[in-house]
Design a protein around this nucleic acid. Sequence first.
DNA 1: CATGAATGAGTATTCATTCAT
DNA 2: CATGAATGAATACTCATTCAT
Lengths: 191, 191, 191, 191
Amino acid sequence: MATTAKSTSKPEAVMAAALGLFVERGFYGTAVPEIAQKAGVGAGTIYRYFASKEVLVNEIFRNEKMRWGQVLMAASPVTTARDLFRSLWMRMAKFAVENLQSFVFMELHHHARYLDDESRALEQRMLALFEDIIKAAQSRGELKAAPPRLLMAIIMGMFVGLIRDSIEQDLMLSDAEWKLAEQCGWEAIRA
Amino acid sequence: MATTAKSTSKPEAVMAAALGLFVERGFYGTAVPEIAQKAGVGAGTIYRYFASKEVLVNEIFRNEKMRWGQVLMAASPVTTARDLFRSLWMRMAKFAVENLQSFVFMELHHHARYLDDESRALEQRMLALFEDIIKAAQSRGELKAAPPRLLMAIIMGMFVGLIRDSIEQDLMLSDAEWKLAEQCGWEAIRA
Amino acid sequence: MATTAKSTSKPEAVMAAALGLFVERGFYGTAVPEIAQKAGVGAGTIYRYFASKEVLVNEIFRNEKMRWGQVLMAASPVTTARDLFRSLWMRMAKFAVENLQSFVFMELHHHARYLDDESRALEQRMLALFEDIIKAAQSRGELKAAPPRLLMAIIMGMFVGLIRDSIEQDLMLSDAEWKLAEQCGWEAIRA
Amino acid sequence: MATTAKSTSKPEAVMAAALGLFVERGFYGTAVPEIAQKAGVGAGTIYRYFASKEVLVNEIFRNEKMRWGQVLMAASPVTTARDLFRSLWMRMAKFAVENLQSFVFMELHHHARYLDDESRALEQRMLALFEDIIKAAQSRGELKAAPPRLLMAIIMGMFVGLIRDSIEQDLMLSDAEWKLAEQCGWEAIRA
DNA sequence: CATGAATGAGTATTCATTCAT
DNA sequence: CATGAATGAATACTCATTCAT
């Protein structure tokens, strides 16, 4: 009678279904009963676990953001900025490819008006994390002496652009291409 | 600098109002009567010029895309890829800064489900345009030998990332920063 | 093209329909679309005139209360308490019989939780009005020396009891019975 | 004074909880799970004892009505109508004060649409009981020669009016006031 | 041409009731 | 017996669109 490790719990099923639909059709374009149906639960059931559609989207956002954060935080020990960058980039690529929807979701909902303060705060913490890594490398003269936010925007923008493009073309980048892109990224910001 | 001597026509006023609201609240988050009010016309009037809300958003999309296209197409004559890149980048920056809403609108609505075939086709033509420029430069050995789409995604991604970030921080990049960023962009793709 | 005096306006039709249904089935027992149908308007139309179902019920309450207030306020000039009582009673009877639903509505919704402060304040003003009449008569020694609220509760209670009973039996009191009842009322409170 | 040595049974707890909530928020305004929680039982448990919410409210109604009936029926032996009235009035007052919620509940749900035939029949029997008492007194010339229902409506109306008022003012009548009111009641109907 | 009142299909959410445990 | 998680029908309310003026 113990809940098996395998079978997804109801709230998890709801979050997974909602994630997919929000990516496909947007927040306002997705009806709650649609989510319920895709999750294989009754419409009312959703409200047992999430007080409202808005709470649901925030919960998903934070959930995915945390998973993404772990990719960045499991950052490497002391190495050169070059190695750090490569490692980070490849980890990001791995995550993005394996969690395409999750990644796209975070991008799309970035500044959405329905994100609550907690979600926004989490977003800021993630950015700060990234910024610190950049500052450290800059202080060692390994990166260009530009505002850290600028370098961050450049790298993250590139990365997102690549993912978006591969979605549009419905064709994932090969390993070789990821490495090529990584090289581009590095050359963009190196001192 | 006024585009026309005459005061903006009604359909123009509608499109301008709608553009602003779609950027602020999204397509589904914007009510047609709201657009009407902001445009200073009656709700019914909108339907004299646009068959539906969807037609309206597509019309705006294409309109803005064309304006953006002119920035790219008014491309320079024969020069080095370096100069071409710089010129293109700075024109893009100028347009984006002067037409922030327009730029954000195009980004947000990129793949939206309510875009019709004509809009999608236009989008493809713009990409092809860009691709051609890249291929030409590659054939002269001035750019990295990567798939043109990849280089394009990298550059456009960077650019969008910068704009997004400056919106988030509510602080536009300075001229110096734009130049710095341009240098990053160039180093990312140069051979 | 002038709006004819005859044809009821839409908000009036809605209020009339809602009054009837609220009396029959209660506030929570009445669905908004039911009101719309009975009023002969679309469901959405109700929300052009009343921000919510709650606003609607309050608007009706105040409207009816004001009409009832006019019955009491058009009180007679200086006479004996006996004559004043008779006049008041008969006016109340006339109103109640001619506006049965209105009267029942006010009784049922007296303390309802969905009444807002404005409605409650109006209710209090009506009571004060009544109390003043009683106090004046008491000071002339024409009524029993009991707390005014007590005499008021007795008279209003009797009156409501009669109306309720005639509704239950679906048989209105005759003129003779109203006079009889009036006599009972007077004897209950006279000094 | 505990009715039983044993702690209240589950159905009793449910009825008590429901009575309180129905008085506070009305029938449609009260959710079954709320009742369950207040009664300290599971939501499903209610349905072991009451087939539906409607059955529950009817059961409560009849239960309270019977208790009220006992107040009236335990009527006194042969005395004057004056004494009988006083005794009845004071018993009613005692019951109403000690069972305010019960009393209010009966008043509010009097004609509610969810009352079933059995409840309605019980209501009629109670009225008949009262009517007989009045007729007897009338035949002895001690009461006014008015239709019994009219006198009954007057007295019950007065009584309800007093209770309602004391609830509104959140201030129970004193013994002296109850006696004063009783005198008013008597004078209203005595021959 | 222009309007905005009117509409009703569609949305998020609640709640009486069931049933597997 | 008792439970409370699950359900889906029903509710209040919104909004794209129409059309009489």
